[in-house]
């Protein structure tokens, strides 16, 4: 067990973003976190990386508390080098060109010679599918997907032990998505890097994840292997991973925005026709978290 998140709680004003988040991540694992937009995935990442500190609960790295309500940002510094992150908006330094963006941490924090640094930059850019000649471009001259890949290159050039990716592929075409997925896997092969990936791309998640976790209403409502999530009978999860907003269950939009919806109160949408086979799920209680995949009804009445 490398990283353990216990009862993490965070609120902004009177909006509680993280209620009670519990997660365990093992070394060398790829964990994919899925969840609706605004469900607090980025906030969770900012806690793991030490940019925010919780109101309650704690985060342990190898059984040592690295983040708790009483932790000061300076206390986090000693473990900071073990983490790397790709920000959702890439967060490139816009006064520097692409090459300098990558070279900046290398020059300041390592003892590599200028030649080695150049080689490393070339390597990293190549890994994310960018040609050497982009080195002299400014971030403002790049496309959104390119920016995100430069951000990725900058994060991996330092080879952190634990890498967090906040939607690494949401701005990429399918070919680049595949390339980034392969990169995440190869980093694990080569450096035994632990990865936590926030993604909305279920296909990618199935491909790279050892474990998947779903966050909803500030809680982890599911955590298990991709196979388990596929078999989960929680209709909300099914709806999410199948991308069927109104097929089975629909959150009432007004209620969602008011933040009033609770999981247990989800009602089947009356506006749309229920999906085939969903009738017998409608009135079932949710099992939270559904650790063991419940056996699918075979030849049940609903079929």
């Amino acid at each position: 067990m490398l990283l353990k998140i216990e009862h993490l709680r965070k609120h902004f004003g009177n909006q509680i973003v993280l209620h009670d988040v519990n997660l365990v991540i093992n070394k060398g694992e790829v964990l994919c976190i899925i969840g609706q937009s605004g469900s607090g995935k980025t906030v969770l990442f900012r806690h793991i990386i030490g940019l925010m500190f919780p109101d309650g609960g704690r985060i342990l790295l190898e059984n040592e508390v690295i983040s708790s309500p009483t932790t000061k940002p300076s206390d986090f510094n000693k473990v900071r080098k073990r983490f790397g992150i790709l920000f959702q908006g890439a967060a490139l330094f816009d006064s520097m060109n692409v090459g300098e963006n990558l070279a900046f941490p290398l020059r300041e924090l390592t003892n590599f010679t200028e030649k080695e640094i150049n080689r490393k930059i070339g390597d990293s850019l190549e890994k994310v599918g960018l040609k050497e000649e982009f080195k002299t471009k400014m971030p403002s001259e790049l496309s959104g997907g390119m920016r995100s890949r430069v951000g990725l290159a900058r994060a991996i050039v330092m080879e952190p032990e634990i890498m967090l990716y906040d939607e690494p592929t949401s701005a990429l075409d399918p070919i680049m998505t595949d390339k980034v997925n392969d990169l995440i896997l190869s980093l694990r092969e080569r450096l035994n890097m632990t990865s936590i990936v926030v993604t909305h791309d279920i296909g990618s998640a199935y491909k790279i994840a050892d474990k998947m976790a779903m966050i909803h209403e500030g809680k982890i409502i599911f955590s298990g292997t991709p196979g388990e999530i596929r078999q989960s009978r929680n209709p909300y999860i099914q709806q999410f991973i199948l991308g069927q907003r109104k097929r089975v269950y629909a959150l009432d939009e007004a209620e969602t925005y008011a933040g009033k919806v609770e999981l247990g109160k989800l009602k089947p949408s009356t506006k749309t026709q229920p999906a085939v086979g969903s009738e017998n799920l409608v009135n079932k209680k949710f099992e939270m978290p559904a650790r063991k995949p419940p056996r699918l009804p075979t030849g049940g009445k609903g079929r």
């Binding site: 990386i49 940019l51 900071r80 983490f83 490139l92 330094f93 816009d94 941490p105």
Partner: peptide, 10 residues
């Protein structure tokens, strides 16, 4: 960008 600097220990 400031967060990115902090995370990179810059």
């Amino acid at each position: 960008q400031l967060d990115a600097m902090n995370v990179l220990r810059l």
